[in-house]
Design a protein around this nucleic acid. Sequence first.
RNA 1: AGUCCCGUAGCUCAGUUGGUUAGAGCGCUACACUGAUAAUGUAGAGGUCCGCGGUUCAACUCCGCGCGGGACUACCA
Length: 1146
Amino acid sequence: MGKRFPEYKTLDLSQINKDILKIWDENDTFHKSVRELNDKGEFVFFEGPPSANGIPGIHHVMARTIKDAICRFKTQCGFEVKRKAGWDTHGLPIELGVEQALGITKEDIGTEKISIEDFNKACRTDVMRYTDLWEDLTRKMGYWINMDHPYVTYDSRYIETLWWLLKQLYSKGYLYKGYTIQPYSPAAGTGLSSHELNLPGCYRDVKDTTCIALFKLIRDKKSEFLFKNIDTDTVHMMAWTTTPWTLPSNTALAVGEDIIYIKVRSFNPYSGNPVTVIIAKDLLKAMFPDSDSAGELSDYKTGNKKLPYKILEEFPGRKLHGINYEQLIDWVKPDPGAFKVVTGEFVTTEDGTGIVHIAPTFGADDYRISKEFGIPPMIVKRKDGSFGPMVDKKGYMVPIADLDDRFVKDRVNISTYKDFEARPVKNEYDASIPEGSETIDVDIVVMLKQQGKVFRIEKQIHSYPHCWRTDKPVLYYPLDAWFIRTTAFRERMIELNNTINWKPQSTGTGRFGKWLENLVDWNLSRTRFWGTPLPIWVTEDRKEEMCIGSAHELKTEIEKSVKAGFMKKNPLENFVPGDNSQENYEKFDLHRPYVDEIVLVSPKGKKMFREPDLIDVWFDSGAMPYAQAHYPFENKENFHDMFPADYIAEGVDQTRGWFFTLHAIATMISDSVAFKNIISNGLVLDKNGNKMSKRLGNAVDPFTTIEEYGSDPLRWYMLTNAQPWDNLKFDMAGIDEVRRKFFGTLYNTYSFFALYANVDNFRFTERDILVNMRPEIDRWIISLLNSLVREVRKCYEDYDLTRAGRAIQDFVTENLSNWYVRLNRKRYWGGDYDNDKIAAYQTLFACLETVSRLAAPLAPFYMDQLFRDLNNTTGRHNEESVHLAIFPEHDESLIDKNLEDRMDIAQKISSMILGLRRKVSIRVRQPLAKIMIPVPDKSFKAKFEAVKDLVLAEVNVKEVEYIDDTSAVLVKKIKPNFKTLGPRYGKLMKEISNAVMSLGQDEITAFENSGTHQIDINGQRVALTLEDVEIISEDIPGWQVANDGKLTVALDITVTEELRYEGIAREFVNRIQNIRKENGYDVTDKITVNIEDHDFVREAVKRHASYIGSQTLATTVNLVNSFSGNNIREVEIDDVIVKIVVSRNN
RNA sequence: AGUCCCGUAGCUCAGUUGGUUAGAGCGCUACACUGAUAAUGUAGAGGUCCGCGGUUCAACUCCGCGCGGGACUACCA
C-alpha cells in the first residue's frame, strides 16, 4: 500500500487543464464515455454548426458549456450521447468576407474580374480558415463533441440530402415561385438583405413631399349608410402617404377593424369646396389642428386659415370593409376587383389618418393584405410579354414605349400618363437631373390638387433606408423568389411547439410562439453564388418544371440530356449510385457554376435550365438532423435513433434562425418536433453591460482567459453567475472569485484530507462504518450531502445548470468546509486511529468524492483530478475517470431534516455567542463558564442537547443552562402571526397588530399559561390562540443577550481565576503551535517546551502542563528560571512578555 | 413599431403559493481568529426593491400604464 493521496503545493487550474487534457487524450476518455456507459439507450443531441470563417469568442464558450454540461450529465446517467460536430460553410457573411478580402463587389463576380468558379473556390478555402482555432478552443474548454467526422454543409452528400428534402416539399406542392416585396437598390440593380439594410448609416433622414389624398367613394348598397344626412354629393376617405409616386399603383385602402372612424363635414382647403370625409376619430385633432368645431360652416370663406368642421357620425372600421371607391389616378387600369376598402391588423392611429393607402407592388404589408383579400396589384405588361409593377427596375415610371401595344390600347390612359412616363421616382436615380429639381412626387401632388383630390400637402422629414454601396435610396420592390409554403403548417408547428420544453419557457411561448402565429411563407431564394443551389430546372416557356432529389436522379436526367444532344458530357458519369464514400461524392460538384451548366431535357423534349437561385443558408442548418446522417441515402433504418433530438442549446438570437428552421423542416418532413428540450442562452456583454465587439476592443479572448485561469472557473462562473438566458456581464474578477471561493475552498478541503489521511495511512480499506454509528456531525453532513445529490440531480434533469452549480458551491463552501471541517479538525490530527477517526475520514472522503461526480459536468477538469486522486489511492471505483463514473444517487433514509434543523440552530447560536464575545472583547481562547438558553418548547431542548457539545467546543464555553419557559427572568416580546390572523380578520389587522404588540409582560405570561387571549377591537371580540402569535424571549436582565429570530442566548462573561489559567494555557498552545510551524517541524514531530517562570503564567502552566503537552505534541512542558541557547523566543500574552524555548526531540 | 428578457446594497446576484426586520458574495471600515492559512470569523456603513396607478387587511411578489438597458423581427401609410 505505497500509494498516497497526492498533495499539491498550490492550486494551478491552468496546469490541471493541460494535465487532464493529456490524460483524456492518452486514455481516449471521450470515446470511452460515449461507448461504455450506454445501458440507458440513446440521448440525442444536435450541434448547431458554427461558421468557421470567424474567430471564436467568449460567448461561444458560454453556449458550448451549456451544451457540454447536459451531455456529460446524461452520459454519467448511463445514456449514450453521440454528438457530431458540424460546420456551417455557406452564406452571405462568408461571401462578403471574401469580397472584402479580394477587394471586389458582387457585381464583379462572374465578370472578367473573377469567375464564379474562382470566387466559390475562394469561399471554400476561406470558410475553413479558422477551423484550427475552433478545434483548439473546443479541446481546451473541454467541450466534448465528436470532431472525427464533422458534417460540412458544402459536402455533396450534405447537399444531396437538402435536395431530397426540397423535392419532398416540391412534390407535395409546398415549393412554389412567387414574388415578394424586398428592399431593392435600383442604382445597384440588386436586392438587399436585411443584414445589408442594418449596416450603420443606412437609415438617413430625408425630406419628402407627403400628402393626404381624397378617395371618392362609390355610392352603392354597401356605402349607402354613409350618404345619409349629408349636404354634399360625394363622400371621400382620406389617406396619408410619404411616397406619392406609389399613388398611381394604389388598388386598395386599409382600415382597422376596431378603430372608430368618423364622418366629418368640412371644406377642401385648396378649392374651398364643401367636402364630407372619413377619418379615424383619434386623428381628428391632427387633421384639423387650427380649426374650431364651434365655427359655423356657413361662415367659411375660401382661404381661411381655420377650417370649421362638424362630426356627423361615427362607426367602427369593420363597417367600411368592402366599400368601393374610384381610382385616384387613372393612368393604368388594373384587373377587376381593385379599389376596395379592406381591414388590416397593422393599421394604427398613430399617424396619418387611420386609413392606409395600399399599393401591393411597393409595400410588404400592402402585398400581404392584398393577397389576403384578393385585391389585384397594379401590374403592367411589357413588350417582352413579362409583367411587372409600374416602376421598372431602374426606378423609373415605365416608359410607354416599353409596354405591350395591346396592353397600352386596352389599359393605359395615354393622355394622363404621358406627362409622367419614364420619370425616375427618386431624382437620385438620374444623374442628369439637377439637384433641387422638383420630384415626381411634387408633380403628382400638384396634379391631385388641381383635381380637388388632395386635402393637405406637407414636406416632412423621416428616416429612409439607403443602399450602402450607392448611397441612393432603396426601393421596396417586388422580386421573384421561391417560397416554401410554411403557412400551410402553421397550426401543426404551433401544436408541436407546445410539446417542447423551453428554457426559459417564455422564449418558447413568447418569442417563438408569437413568431409561429405570425408566420409567413419562407422565402428560400438568394441571388448569390456560394451556397446550396436550388435543384429546379425549368423550360424557357416556364411550362415544364423538374425538381431533382438526388445525385443518382441528376445523373440519370443528364444522361437523357446527353442523348438529346443538349449536353456533350455527363459531369456525373463516374459517380456510382449507392456508393456513399467521400471519394465517390467528390467526383462532381453541385455548386455554381457547374450546376448552372447542366441543361436537362423535359418530357416534351425541351431544354430545361436551372433556376439561378441559391437557397437560404438557414435551410442548410435547419436540415442538419437529416443531412448530417445523409438521410435517406444512409441511416434510413436507424434514423429514429438519431431523431428527434432530446436536447439542443444555442443563443436566443437563433430563435428565428436555427430553432425555427429545425422546427419547420422537421414538422414539414417528419410531422415531428426536431428537439424536445432546449436551452436558449442570452448574450455575453462586457463588465459594463456593453456589447462586446472587436471595434470597441472590449471583446474577451477565450484562449488567453483559459490559459490564465483554466476552463473550469470560466465555465463555473458563466453558469452560476446568472441564469443562462439573462445577459451575462462578463467580468474577469468574477472568474477569479470563483477560483478562490469555490475551487480554492474545495482544493483546501481536499488538501486537508490528504495531509492527514496520508499521516494516518487511511486508504479506505476498512469497511464502511454504519452511518448511524457515526457521530451527529457526520450524520449531519451526510444528510446534507444526500439532500444535495437529490437537488442537483433534479436541477440537471430540469436543465437548470445554474441552480445545480450554486447548490454544489454552497454545500462545499458553507457546509463542508466552513462548518464540517472547521469543527472536526481535531478529530483528524493526533489521537488514535479509532473508529471515530475512521468515520471522520470516511465521511469527508464520501463528501469529496460525491462532489467530484456531481460537479463533473460543469467543471470537467478539476473534478476529474479530484476523482482520480481519491480513487487511485483507494480503488473505490473501477472507472479511470469521473466522466465514466455513474452519477450519484441519493439515499432518502440518510436525509434527516430534523438533524439539519438542529445543526442550523447550532450554527446560529454559535455565531450569536461569538458575536457576544466580540461585543465584550473576550477572545475565544478564553474559556467561559456557561451560556443560558430559554427553551420555548420541549422539542427545542432535545434538539439543542444533541448539538450541545459542538456548540460548547466551538465557542469555548463549559456548560449550558436551560431557562424554563415560565421563569420570570425572561423579558418577552409578542408579535401577531399575520398568516393565520389575516384571512380571518382582514381589515381589523392593523388594530389587532397594535393591540397584540402592546401587551405587557404579565398579560403575555397569562396568555402563555391559558393558551388563549381575547381582545376587543372596536367592540368586536377577537379570540387569539398561541397559533396566532409569536412569543420571543427577548432579554434576560443583567446578562449579555443576543437574538436571532426565535433564538435567544445569554452568555456568562465572568472570568474566574480557574478560567483565566485555562485561557492562558490555551494562549500557550497557540504560541507553541505557531513556533512549531515557523520552525518548519512536521506535524508529527515531538517537542520539548521550556517556559520562563513568571508570576503571570506560573499557576496556569503548572495546572495545565499536560493539556499543553497533548495539544502540541510536547513530551515535557517545564517552567525554568534561565535560558541558554539561541532559540529563545518571546511571546506576548495579555500584555505580558514571556520567554519560551521550543525544541524538537531527537 | 411589435414580441420577448432584464431592472433588488457601490458591483454580481438570491428572494419559494402575497404575511410585516428584503438576503448572500465581492468591495469598504473596525476588530478578532489561526497546525486547512494567498484561508476564516464577528460587527459596522450601504436599499424610495426603476417610477406611477390599481387589487388586497397586507405587494419586492399579482394586474395596468410608463421609464431605462438588451435581444430578435419589421420598417409600414
